[in-house]
Design a protein around this nucleic acid. Sequence first.
RNA 1: AGGCAAGUAGCUCAGGGGGAGAGCGCCAUCCUGACGCGGUGGAUGUCCAGGGUUCAAAUCCCUGCUUGCCUACCA
Length: 885
Amino acid sequence: MAKRELGKAFEPADAEKRLYDYWLKNHFFHAQDESEAEAFSIVIPPPNVTGMLHMGHALNNTLQDIIIRFKRMQGYNTLWMPGMDHAGIATQNVVEQQLMKEGISRHDLGREKFIARVWEWKEKYGGVIINQLKRLGCSCDWERERFTMDEGLSHAVREVFVRLYNEGMIYQGDYIVNWCPRCHTAISDLEVEFKQDQSFLWNIRYPFADGEGEIVVATTRPETMLGDTAVAVHPDDKRYKDKIGKYVILPLMNKKIPIIADEYVTMDFGSGAVKITPASDPNDFAMAQRHNLEIIIVIDGKGFINEKGGVYKGQDRYEARKNVIADLEKGNYMVGTEPYAHNVGQCYRCKTDIEPMVSKQWFVKIKPLAKQAIAAVVKDKTKIIPKTWEATYFDWMNNIRDWCISRQLWWGHRIPVWYCDGCGKIIVATVDPDKCPECGGVSLRQDEDVLDTWFSSALWPFSTLGWPDQTKALKTFYPTSLLITGFDILFFWVARMMMMGIYVMKDVPFQHVYLHALVRDEKGEKMSKSKGNSIDPLLMIDQYGTDAFRFTLSAYTAQGRDVRLSPERIEGYKFFVNKIWNASKLTFANLEDFDESAPVSVPDSLPDKWIKTKLNKAIEDITLGLNEYRFNDASAAVYRFIWHELCDWYLELSKPAFYGKASPEEKQAAQRTLREVYEIMLQLLHPFMPFLSEELWQTLKGSDEHSIMVSKFPVVKTQWEDKAAESEMEMIMEVITSIRNIRGEMRIAPSQKLKVLISAADELNKQTIEKNNSYIINLANLESLTVEMNMIEPKGVATAVTGATKIFVPLAGAVDISGEKTRLEKELGKVSKDLEQCSKKLANRDFCAKAAPEIIQKEQEKLKDFQKKFNTLEGALKKLKGLSV
RNA sequence: AGGCAAGUAGCUCAGGGGGAGAGCGCCAUCCUGACGCGGUGGAUGUCCAGGGUUCAAAUCCCUGCUUGCCUACCA
C-alpha cells in the first residue's frame, strides 16, 4: 500500500478551494433529468440578488447541504436546485442610490433605461452570495441555476397570472393598501412591521351642526381629520343614541359630516365616539364601505397633503400634524391630550411609517387557494416539521386576506395587462399583444405596475424545473422532497408556494417542510447590523475553516430552538477537526504496511469486535437523526463515536497490536479492522464536514479517482452485532477506569507502574480478565496484574468494586490511610444512597404487584450489585479504621 | 389581546414515566511513541413553583410565575 503522509495540521483554505473545484470539474453536483434511481430534490430558498451571506443563510444552506450530501450518498438521484430572487424593492433601491450619487433619478432615465441599468448592476455586482454559498461547500446543481427574472421564469409568471385572471382569481380594485411614501409603492400586509410609538391621544371637539353641544373624538393622527367623512358611535351607546343620523361640523374644514352607528366602535374607549377617515385607515375604510361614506384622499403618495386638504396643501404629514394641532387649539377645538403608546406600521424595507392609502391595485382572491393548502397539510400530503408550526400555519391560512400583488416599481415582472385607448378593452395575455382583439386599435398601454416579488417566488418549485413546459426534470423532481427554510418566511413564501403549487400543478410543492430557528448571538439576541452583534460567516470560515463552522451550526440545531452562536463554539469544533486529523495521522502510520490482499488468519480481537458494534450504533444514530432532521443528535453521534469511542478507546486499545509484541497475524487483523472502521467513519462524517472527509478519503485511497461524496453511505452490518463482546469489553473498560480513578484520587504518579490485584467473583469472571489482562496492563499502566478467586483483601491497598470484580491497588510507600478513608467514605455514601432507594422500591408491595416484570428484575439485580459493593467498601473501611486506631 | 415554545450543572443546551446527561468552563495531575487544538481523574444540580394522575413524575395533566417568539392591532 502506498505511503500516505499528512502535514502537521489540516489546511482548510487550501483544501476547500482545491476540493470544491475538483467536485465541480467532475460534475458531482449534477442531477440527472431521468434516472433509474429514486429522485430526491430540494429547491433552495432563493437569496436576494442584492444579498450577502449572513448567519441565517449559513445555517439554512448548511442544513440543506447536509441532507443533500446524505441522500446523494444513499444513492438517490439528488437535485439541489439553486438560484436567486430579483428582490424588487431592495434591488431598485440599490440602483436608485447608485443613480443618486450621479445626481440623477430613475425618472430622469426613464423606465426602459433604468431597467437596463438594473440588469447591468446585476451582472456586475449581483449574486455575490452565490460564491459565498460555494465557500460553505454547498453542493447545488449550479448547471441549473435560475433567476426569478430570467426568461423562463418570467414566462411562468405570465402564464400563472393569465390563468388566475381568466378563472376570476385576480381582480383589480380601489382598496386601502399599505403605502410606503418613500418606496412609492403599495406593500402587502406581511411587509408591514409594527413598532411601538410613545405618542399622544388628542381629544378633539366636533360641534353639532344644529344647536348646542359637541361630540368629542380621540385620535392619534390629528392630521387625518382633514379627510374625515363621518363620526361613528356604537348603536347601543345610550349617550349618543339620539344623535345618530345628525351632523357635526368638521373643525378647520367647516364641513357637515354625519354621525353613524357601527358595532366596530368600542363604547368604553375614550368618549365612545370615533372620527372616520376612510382614505387613511383600514378600519375606517371598511366602515365607509358598509355605510356608503364618501372617501376623500387628503394625503398623496409622497406623504404630503394634497389640494383636498385646504390650507394645509403641500405640507408633509408630520408638519401638517403640528399645524392642525395648533389651529385646533387656536379655535378652541382641542379638549386635551394624554400620553399614549400605540403601534405604528413601518415599511420592512426602509422603516418609513406606512401611510394607509386608497388606490387602484391588483389582488389575488386567496381564500379558495388557502382552503386547499390547508387541506394538503391536514391530509399529511405535506408534512411540516416540527409539527408545532402546523398550528401557526393553519391559523394564518384560516384568517388570510386577499393578497395585494401589484407594486408601483419598475424592477420586476410587469403586469401582463394592456388597456386599449380605442375601446377601453382590457387585454390580459402571456405574449405582448400588437393590436386590440376587440376594435383592432394599435394604441395599447401596458399596466404600469409590476408584481410582488413573492409572486414569482411562489412558483419557484416548478418554474425552476421548466414549467410551463412539461420537462423531464419537472416530471422527475416535482413534487420536491423537502424544503428547508427559516420559520420567519412561513407565510411569505412557504404558504404561497403551497397555494400556487396546488393551484398550478394540482399537487403539493414538497413532501416535507423543515423549519429551522433563527441564529442569535450568545446572549440570545437577534443578530443585526445596528446592534453590532452580527457574526460574519465568511470571517468564521476564514478563521476556523468551513468544516468546523458547519459542524457547529449542525450541532446546535435542535428542533424548535434558536441557534446561539459564539466564536468560542466554532473554535471548539476546530479542535475536533484537529483531533480527527491527528487520529488520521496515527491511522495512516498504522496502516502503512497493510496488505489488503493477505488472507484473514486470526479472528477479531475484543477491541475490534467492540468498535464494530459501536460503529454500527453510530451508523444507526446518524442515519436516524438525519432522516428525522434532528441535526444535533446526528452531529452528537458523529462526535461521540470519533472522539470518545474511536480515539479515546479503540486507538489506544489497539496500539499494542501495532507496537507491542503482537504476532504479524494479529497486527494484520487489527489493520483490517482499523482500515474498515476508519473508512466508514469518514463517510459518516462527510455530510457534516465535506472538505476534511474528502481530503482524508483521497489520502486513504491514494488518489482522487473516487470521491467520498459519491461513495455509498454506510449501512448497519448485522454480522458486526456482538452483544457479548460489547459487554465483555465494557467490563474491562470499567476495571481500567476504576484503577485510573484510584490513581487520580490517591495522587499516584502516572509514571509509577502498579501491581494490581483482582478478586474475581467466579471462574468465568477470572478467565475473562486474564484473557484480556494486556489491555488493563497497558491502559492502566501496570507492572503486573494478579487475578484470583475470592482473594482475601490484602493490607495497605485502595479498594474499588465494579460489578462482580474487586480491585485492590497497593499503595506505595507510606500508606495514605486518611486519604483512602475519605475516598472510601465518599464512595460508600454514594452506594448507600443508591442501596436505600433501591431496597425501598422493592419493599413497596404496590411496586412489586404493578410494575413491569423486567423493571422489577432490573431493580433486583441493581440491589444485588449495590449490596455487594457496599459490603466490600464497608469491609475495606473497617479494616482501615482498625489500622489507624 | 390571542397563540406557540422554553424554564435541567457556572454557561449553552440534550433527554423525556423506572439508576440526573453532553459540550464548554472549573479544580487536580501528566512532555505515555496521533493530538497540550491533547491525555487522565475530579467537583457541581430543590430538573421554575404549587397541585394532580401513577406502584413510580425532571418526564404526563392542571394552575401560577418568568422569558422568548409569532399573529392581530383598538381610535
